[in-house]
């Protein structure tokens, strides 16, 4: 079976000449369907750069990247936006909901950009919000929701388009311990439903939830281990 993520000798260089910074120095990583992977590393280790490349937000300097069997390397911006829309669900540290837009509209947005009809997308958005336990908060604006609730709306938005990959960038970084537990619990359930999740974090106890932990040091993979269930 094709892996969801297939990275081969990915490098990323920022700047040029004296200011040249090597953020990634040859990453080889394959993530299978249904896996739950935590990517760890200190700040500056290159994990955010890796996340941007995996999320098709940024292009690698060299190497090959295939997402769900699609070669990402030579896609233009327009094709990349389709890939982001259909294959990837983003969950950000700072939630990144669209302000002054209801939870329901936020969740609908990926389907809007995909061109799904209003009635269908509303139904799917409601289902997604109910699955994260926010069926009663659909018409609230982001600023009327707690951090934990906002992050759950973001998870619903990431889920609604049925992507191949859920990509979470420090999803619990801005949350208190109770909301963290809620969100991690939610991620665990999604994993149990067979979703592929890649989560970037620097907290050990968060990484402990994942089935596999990849640790980055100075732009290279220093450790790749499986947690015991």
């Amino acid at each position: 079976m094709t892996p969801v993520i297939d990275l081969q000798s990915i490098t990323k260089v920022y700047g040029a000449g004296d200011t040249e910074v090597q953020a990634l120095r040859g990453i080889d990583l394959s993530i299978a369907r249904g896996d739950y992977v935590a990517i760890m590393g200190a700040s500056g280790s290159g994990k955010s750069t890796l996340m941007n490349i995996v999320g098709a937000l940024d292009a690698a300097t060299s190497g090959h990247y295939a997402l769900d069997g699609i070669d990402i390397d030579d896609l233009d911006e327009s094709a990349l936006s389709i890939v982001r829309n259909r294959k990837i669900g983003f969950i950000f540290q700072s939630f990144n909901l669209i302000p002054r837009t209801s939870a329901l509209s936020n969740v609908e947005l990926p389907l809007v950009y995909r061109g799904v009809r209003r009635r269908e997308r509303r139904a799917r958005a409601i289902t997604a919000l109910e699955s994260v336990g926010l069926g009663d908060r659909m018409h609230h604006m982001p600023n009327e929701l707690s951090g934990g609730q906002q992050q759950r709306v973001a998870v619903a938005r990431a889920l609604v388009a049925e992507p191949s990959l859920l990509l979470a960038d420090e999803p619990t970084g801005n949350l208190d311990s109770r909301s963290t537990a809620d969100v991690l619990d939610l991620m665990g359930r999604l994993h149990d439903q067979g979703r592929t999740i890649v989560m970037i974090t620097h907290e050990d106890d968060v990484a402990a939830q994942a089935g596999r932990v990849v640790t980055l040091v100075d732009g290279q993979i220093s450790e790749d281990r499986r947690n015991r269930p």
Partner: peptide, 8 residues
């Protein structure tokens, strides 16, 4: 955000 979600 919109672009990350897939806005062209």
């Amino acid at each position: 955000i919109r672009k990350a979600i897939g806005a062209r």
